[in-house]
Design a protein around this nucleic acid. Sequence first.
DNA 1: TGAAATGTTGGGGCG
DNA 2: ACGCCCCAACATTTC
Length: 480
Amino acid sequence: MTTILWFRQDLRTDDNPALLVAAARGPVIPVYLWAPEDEGEWPYGGASRWWLHHALAALETRLAALGSRLVVRTGRAVSALPKLLKETGATRVVAARRYEPAAAAVEAELAERLGPAFERVDSSLLHVPESIRTGTGLPYQVYTPFAKNCRMQAKPPRPQRAPSSLEAPPTWPRSEPLDALGLLPTIDWAAGMRAAWTPGETGALAALRAFVAGPVARYALERDLPAVVGTSRLSPHLHFGEISPRRAWYAVEDALRKADNAEFSRNAEKYLAELLWREFGHHVLVHFPHTPTSPLRAEYAAFPWRRDKATLRAWQRGVTGYPLVDAGMRELWATGWMHNRVRMVVASFLVKHLLHSWLDGARWFWDTLVDADLANNTLGWQWAGGCGADAAPYFRIFNPVLQGEKFDTDGAYVRRWVPEIARLPNDALNAPWKAPSSALARAGVTLGVTYPQPIVAHDEARERALAALAEVSLAKGARS
DNA sequence: TGAAATGTTGGGGCG
DNA sequence: ACGCCCCAACATTTC
């Protein structure tokens, strides 16, 4: 009995339950459908498309090693999959479930159309989002009790290895060449991404091994240092399902057990908690599917965010005059990724210093991040905007100068991404406008010429944000 | 997974 | 020796 294995955001052979289900039944036809129309308001951005191209190429290679292929088609799932079933005589479609509203709607339509011939498995999260509930049966809106609940659940199943081979169908359906999808940029801006990343499950497993062998032992401290490779850097791999969260979870938990050391445990637990933030993001998205475009806290819906193009563009291009902010935005532009500590700083800056909507930030990240993920991106931006689940309170305003001094003490991160001020001494690096003119001259910096003056003064911007955002809380208080 | 303002404490300089 | 002041260091409160 031939089965169509519909790859979605599970572009791997390792620990892939949908693949195992399909393989257990007989011949398997692995399929990827390129259908931007199926993504609703959030079709893949440029950086994601670049990654996807290479992820699919890597998947083709992996499947070839199993004696199989990847059939690539363009077209919406509701028409393409029934057509493929007819064409191949396959009797079933198996797929790993996705949790974005548009993707879930597509699956619901398919379930109606194909009935029991369409089978979904949950394999991209540690826990099924619907299975985590508060005592009163409601979804969580705060991380800590959510994470506690997750830890009390039965442990997720251990990861399963890929089969050594897949049975091929009697005849292969037509496949489009990967290049025909047009995922790669027409002008090559991806050099920085190629240098920074190895898309595909081999690259994902290598990244996990490297993380568990080194940085995880110092994670609590070093995950906050943007100049240090102190994080797992698994986010794009997890987003595209090149590695399963269970593989990552158990690699770290097993290392923790084996080390049998309180200090190692403390660090490793911090990482497990981060994996649960990913779970939390998906939980919130499933239960509050309007949040990608609307604030979870409704009192923020009417906030008069600023709309001027100039300051938004300065933020996007990394020319705000605040070195840590500019470094982050340029790292994002060059590599498709930004260190998480710096994501918080640039997000706070956009929303609070510049008073631009968190949604403007979310859209920019969507287009530029290789790990753009609707659940995580929405949670992160609503956190920064103060309008989401377990969000930062309105008065929490990051000072980009202090954040730089605290987390990039030796200036290595800022110097790497903002080379025009690299020769400034450490004590001037995060606030060039305060440096004596002699120091600026020695470093070859002319403010307003070689590096911008700050586009807003921190103190004034802070007061402005506090005054404006305090009204939101007042409005809420008055209503309740 | 803040920062700034305000309050408290205690050591040391000094008359 | 003592009281007074200054201020750094730390704690608490406020935004």
